[in-house]
């Protein structure tokens, strides 16, 4: 009997651990949001976070988007050729980039670049007692470290997604007009005609949510890291894994909210 119950007990403990971890992250996120509304504010740290998360992520976002847009155009053309639907390339590239690939790929790139960086930086600060030092200097670590980063991500990631969408569409446009024989003006006209405001709004909302997830997970794991180099490593790895999974799960939910009939 105990042999039967043992796996169930382990499953129960695992479930409780996962629920407890989700609760802790939710409380952390809620505390970060409430601290955003209450002074003191740290504008220099916020501007620095805008630069680090937004501006310096542009190259990786742009490169990811342009190659994805180009590959998407080739795939749709090749796939569409099987049932004489090659002409849908502009429409499918546009809808694919704006609704799904733009936000998801930018979100995952931000998780790789920004979440890992935040988690490693804050975890190092934790193990070297810099976070304790902040407290002794009358500075709330959440206000000084988490709020500027999360706020900057909430603002800049939707912009990055918008930029990624445009660059992705441009990648498809270049491939379609240079390699696949599409007319440039007709391609652009088809793209503009096919996209709806709902597509663009969903893309930007996803960007905002994914940015929040990426920054919150980086801050949470960093500020709660274990000791030593191993603690920093685990925090960094855990933050990226959690951010990537949550971004994909949130994408599924948001797609359902925006586009379920």
């Amino acid at each position: 009997m105990s042999a039967l119950l043992s796996p169930l007990g382990a499953l129960g403990r695992l479930t409780l651990d996962i629920l407890a971890a989700m609760g802790r992250v939710a409380i952390f996120a809620a505390q970060t949001l409430t601290h955003m509304l209450r002074p003191p504010f740290y504008p220099r740290e916020f501007l620095n976070a805008l630069l680090q998360i937004g501006w310096l992520s542009l190259p990786v976002v742009g490169l990811t988007a342009i190659f994805t847009g180009g590959a998407l155009a080739l795939q749709i053309y090749a796939g569409g050729a099987r049932f004489n639907a090659e002409a849908v390339v502009p429409q499918i590239v546009a809808i694919g980039m704006v609704r799904e690939l733009g936000p998801v790929l930018v979100g995952l790139m931000i998780a790789a670049r920004v979440t890992s960086s935040i988690a490693a930086e804050l975890a190092t600060m934790k193990v070297t007692e810099q976070i304790d030092a902040l407290v002794t200097l009358s500075t709330h670590p959440m206000k000084y470290l988490a709020v500027p980063r999360v706020l900057a991500a909430l603002i800049t990631v939707p912009i990055l997604v918008g930029v990624g969408d445009i660059i992705g569409i441009f990648g498809g446009y270049v491939v379609a007009t240079q390699n696949l024989g599409f007319n440039a003006a007709a391609y652009l006209q088809n793209t503009v005609d096919f996209l709806e405001m709902r597509d663009i709004v969903s893309s930007l909302v996803k960007g905002c949510v994914f940015g929040g997830i990426a920054a919150v997970m980086g801050c949470y794991y960093g500020m709660n890291s274990g000791r030593g180099a191993q603690g920093v490593g685990r925090a960094t790895k855990g933050s990226v894994e959690a951010a990537a999974v949550l971004i994909l799960a949130a994408n599924f939910l948001l797609t359902g909210v925006f586009f379920s009939v």
């Binding site: 190092t124 600060m125 070297t128 007692e129 810099q130 304790d132 030092a133 407290v135 002794t136 200097l137 009358s138």
Partner: peptide
């Protein structure tokens, strides 16, 4: 804040902000 303003602390590893 008023309480902590009365304190200064030297940490073992310095804990300087990189």
């Amino acid at each position: 804040d008023a309480f902590l303003a009365r304190f200064g602390m030297l940490f073992q590893g310095g804990a300087l902000f990189d």
